[in-house]
Amino acid sequence: MFWWRNEVRPGVSVAFTDAGAGNLALHVGDDPVDVMARRSRLEHAIEMNSERADPGQFQYMDQVHGNHVEFIASHGPGPTADAMVSAAEVSPSANRRNAQALAVMVADCVPVVLVETSAHNSPVIAVAHAGRPGVASAVVPATVAEMRRRGAVDISAWLGPSICGSCYEVPEELRSDVAAKVPETWSSTSWGTPALDLPAGVRAQMAALDVTVEYSGECTLENDSLFSYRRDSRTGRFAGLVWTHD
């Protein structure tokens, strides 16, 4: 069910699912009842596998390959966005509210999870959907900017599995257009044709923002245990997840 999972700072956990968790997207022609049941099973699995981790209901979003970032105070209808930020809050009565658990779905794009890692600050968490249009239009820098506006200082990132620069073949003109904005995306396939390296582009954007990349996942196209749109256009979506807990 989980491709990778870890408690990345006390009280904050990050995970990426695999095909074993099933399709978690509502927009790919799957039965919505089945999708919601899988989402519930995923949340239950997190709760049962750790006494400390009870994420409640994850917030998903309607991803449109843009660069809009939405702040999420509490669970609700999925916003139309490609990134979400949430933060723990303390009310005037000194009651603490955990940040809203967040989810991002992909099948080749880069699922980005970001966390304020300083133990001296309340958790600020985020997810971003960094496909080709999102990398080119700076969705990740926009997400980091929103996190910092919400009080984050020391930010680290976890990049889930995504299609690699040796597999993501694109037309020459498209490679040139994207690389003109993010030069580190310029790549060639293992068979010598034009390609884009989206994870490299995201890592370069992170470095420019002084964000540490703690993990970068494997290639989706090369792993049958992960969904890949390039391998099969009638495929599901796996998720990058982040949640706070006691």
Rank of each mutant, 00 (worst) to 15 (best):
A138Y: 14
G131Q: 02
D154H: 00
S118R: 14
R150E: 13
M147E: 00
A87T: 06
A152Y: 07
M105H: 08
P123T: 04
A101K: 08
A130Q: 09
L114F: 14
V106C: 14
G134V: 04
S86Q: 01
A145G: 10
V140M: 15
P111C: 10
R132Y: 00
S86K: 02
M147T: 01
A119K: 13
V153S: 11
S156F: 01
V144S: 02
A119Q: 13
V153Q: 14
I125A: 04
V90H: 04
S118L: 11
D108Q: 03
R148Y: 05
A119R: 15
E146T: 12
S156R: 11
A126E: 02
R96A: 04
D108W: 07
S86E: 00
V110R: 08
A142R: 15
A119H: 15
A99K: 05
V90P: 01
D154L: 00
P133R: 13
S118I: 11
T117E: 12
R97G: 01
A94M: 03
E146L: 13
A142H: 12
V153G: 03
E116K: 08
R149G: 14
T117N: 14
V104L: 09
A145N: 14
M105L: 14
V153A: 10
V106L: 12
N98E: 02
T143G: 09
A99F: 04
V144D: 01
P133Y: 10
V139Y: 14
R97C: 03
V127L: 09
P141D: 06
M147W: 04
P141F: 06
L114Y: 15
S137K: 09
P123H: 06
A130S: 11
V112Q: 04
M147L: 01
G151K: 09
L114W: 14
T143I: 11
N98H: 08
V110G: 02
C109R: 01
P123A: 05
V104S: 05
S118Q: 10
R132M: 09
V85K: 13
A99D: 02
S118V: 08
A136Y: 10
Q100N: 02
T143Q: 13
P133V: 08
P133L: 07
E89R: 14
V85G: 05
V90W: 08
N95W: 01
R97Q: 06
V139W: 15
S93R: 15
V139I: 13
H120S: 07
S86N: 00
V104K: 13
V104Y: 07
N98A: 05
V113M: 03
V140Y: 15
P133I: 11
S93I: 07
A142Q: 09
E89A: 09
R149K: 13
H129V: 10
V106D: 09
V124F: 06
P123Y: 06
I155R: 06
A107K: 11
P92T: 06
R96P: 01
D108N: 01
N95H: 08
E89S: 10
R97P: 00
A136G: 12
A152F: 07
A88R: 13
V112S: 03
R149V: 06
